[in-house]
Write a protein that binds this DNA or RNA. Structure first.
Lengths: 198, 198
DNA sequence: GTCTATAAGATGATAGAC
DNA sequence: GTCTATCATCTTATAGAC
């Protein structure tokens, strides 16, 4: 959805439309070329507006990035608070790890950030979202001595799979379907629970 | 080891020493600040030489990066060809995933590349080394229908753990010791083998 | 609300003197 | 073998006209 699409023929000025066009263009560009590979001019050109509006509306390139690739953790992922950790893993694998392939620009923000993790600000945002939004879901559901460590191992597995697919582009995992993978992942996670100190 | 260290008092000209000083400085800088966060002037200044020598000796910044963070996969990691995959996982976890903390500049090249994976050339190098050097070790040792997929899942787990420690800096895994982690990882990998189609 | 013009500086890379 | 000087281009960000 470009600026022109949003405002059709009579080229009126519309702050909200311009803003969301910039956001959308930024999401696409950052997804495809990373933070450093994307200039404010590129984004503005894609949106069909002037580059200075980026600073007017968002303050800085960094702030635009943060807003464009912010993660909204889906509401009812595990279907309520007391659901099985295994169900949560399965849901995450389906919803976030295996929902990144289709068209460019649809990749999950987490892996966009991962590819731009050279910048310290991006890394801070990444840590905040991974630990705060996602890992927190697990630590609450796991029991035992090293619950936090096991939660992070599950996170590492999921992030690693997504990384193999989206940045390393390894042959088998990139081509594999969710159905082919879920059983193997479930087995690994189950083993983690059984190995826990009682 | 800086340029000055290598050539002590009488400042003679020494191609080999200059070259290796640049390589060392580049390794440090790229490790700490990533590809885009590092300028050729920074590297040259650290090495105590002029920036133009980078182009004279290496051709380009990209070529210097590739040489500075190239991975040399250790010789006898799994102790011979027919060793247990589990032993290989344990060795990799110890040697590459948990050998990155000490002083800055000692981090494993794989995670340096991961942090600079915004550049397409870096991603190509990363894919080549992960798939070619490391994953190949596993696929040869695994049997069964989806051996390749399971090999990449093991790789995903190891890469994910390294990533949690080196770029996301998640609390539990960053603080955990190799001994605390190896048992849990071994359990996950073992479950993967048992879940294999016979 | 949006644009032109420009500031102010960093970047990778090159030519040629010493 | 090494350095000085410089090119050409790019960057984010701002001031002010329309």
């Amino acid at each position: 959805m470009t600026y022109a699409d949003l405002m059709s023929e009579p080229k009126r000025r519309n702050k909200a439309a311009t803003r969301s066009a910039l956001l959308e263009a930024a999401r696409r560009r950052f997804t495809e070329h990373g933070y450093d590979g994307t200039g404010v001019r590129d984004i503005a050109a894609d949106a069909g507006v002037d580059a200075t509006l980026i600073f007017r509306y968002f303050g800085s390139k960094q702030a635009l990035f943060a807003e464009a690739v912010r993660v909204e953790v889906p509401e009812g992922l595990g279907r309520g608070r007391r659901s099985d950790p295994a169900a949560l893993v399965d849901a995450l694998l389906r919803e976030v790890v295996f929902t990144d392939r289709p068209e460019p620009g649809a990749e999950h923000p987490l892996f966009v950030m991962l590819r731009s993790a050279g910048r310290p600000e991006v890394r801070a945002q990444l840590r905040e979202q991974v630990c705060g939004e996602y890992l927190a879901e697990f630590t609450g559901r796991l029991q035992g001595a090293d619950a936090e460590l096991r939660a992070e191992l599950i996170g590492a597995l999921l992030v690693g799979i997504g990384l193999m697919r989206s940045v390393i582009d390894s042959p088998a995992l990139s081509e594999a379907s969710f159905e082919q993978t879920r059983g193997l992942v479930a087995a690994m996670v189950a083993a983690l629970h059984e190995a826990a100190p009682h």
